[in-house]
Design a protein around this nucleic acid. Structure first.
Lengths: 209, 209
DNA sequence: ACATACTATAAGACTTTACATATATACTTG
DNA sequence: CAAGTATATATGTAAAGTCTTATAGTATGT
């Protein structure tokens, strides 16, 4: 369960409430990590039981009190130990690929419907990435102007590298995915979605590896 | 739960036992779908309860009896209805990206260790894809020679298209993933794993979209 | 001779994730 | 003014998936 580590990681940036963490997830790492709100609150409770995080109650007049969680030294140690471990193999389950695996049962109209729906989804995601990039740059310009040139600015820039790396992954793989879908659509339109044509393409790809 | 549909799909090819299905999963679709052995047997029982599949007991002297499952007309209808639906959005959870998101805590050695482990894994997978392609081609040549030129051969070739499509996806995305990892390794070696350099690369990528 | 792996199915316990709902208040929008 | 959205935490429950163990014979390798 790496949700524990995801939360510990966020808490190394600064203290957060459960509600904050949920929003942070949804805004910054949704394309490679998502978490249920209920799971976040329960995991925070677990982490606290293990003394990896602690919290202070922050009273609010107009809203329910916030529980502002912070990471403990033991929590930092646990996180750092996990970070250097090779990443666990991921179990993938992609319903679209499953559908395409049975293309022969889909029929031409069914196939183009499925492909078009997926193309729309990936294009929306690429647009979202563009938005994320822009918002990161706006933030960065603002923060760097405030901080000037010093250790604080250096620290901020180092923290930025990780999010930028993952964003690069999203954009690169997203583009490949879109191109693959476009290729399929085109092949279908030109009646080239045959075993022979696919095999030829695969050879091109594999030989270039 | 699309495991139901995955199994229904396989049973449209020909009857299978639970054991067969598990092997089929592991050999052909593991890179985008995996299933637990216990889950397969339970799902087969569920599908039978819903009368979407049936089975005959095949006696064996040397081994436990096989239950050879076949799909029913109701099962085919259920599968075909699912196939044309737009694919459900996938929830991704990628531990590697989570680690890289917190690159600033990883340190240089930790980062290269994690990147190298992942590079090894993806290169092994690409090699596996190459092997799958070769085995498909061997099979194809053999089967087509047996079948000659007729409806049976046409049917076989149509069934092949789906697997080839998903394999193309695996190879294309795998190559992109590997190139992304290589880029990171190179950038790190050259001390260019900075926010400014990453932002510049992201701009190149996003502008090309 | 012994250990390991393959064929074949299945039940039990457990973990993880998802979905719904509860509570309480403020602010916005039609 | 009603409905919806946002803030903030928490519980209950169902579904889905994983891990372990059981049975039982064969085959293969060391």
């Amino acid at each position: 369960m790496s949700l524990r580590y995801a939360i510990l990681g966020f808490l190394t940036i600064r203290p957060f409430s459960g509600y904050d963490i949920k929003r942070y997830f949804d805004n910054s790492v949704r394309h490679f990590w998502s978490a249920d709100q209920a799971a976040i609150y329960r995991t925070l409770a677990d982490l606290e039981k293990d003394q990896l995080v602690g919290h202070e109650r922050v009273e609010q007049q107009t809203r329910p009190d916030r529980k502002l969680y912070h990471i403990t030294p033991a929590g930092v140690a646990e996180l750092d130990a996990w970070l250097v471990l090779p990443a666990a193999a991921v179990v993938r389950r992609e319903p679209l690929l499953l559908k395409l695996f049975f293309t022969n049962r889909l029929g031409a109209e069914g196939l183009s419907a499925v492909l078009n729906a997926e193309l729309g989804a990936i294009e929306a995601q690429l647009a979202e990435f563009k938005g994320i990039l822009e918002s990161i740059e706006r933030d960065r310009a603002e923060v760097l102007q405030q901080l000037g040139d010093g250790d604080a600015a250096d620290g901020y820039r180092k923290v930025l590298v990780g999010p930028l790396i993952t964003l690069t992954n999203g954009v690169r793989l997203g583009v490949s995915y879109r191109d693959w879908l476009r290729g399929l659509t085109q092949a279908q339109e030109q009646g080239e979605l045959t075993d022979a044509a696919m095999l030829a393409e695969l050879h091109r790809l594999v030989d270039a590896v």
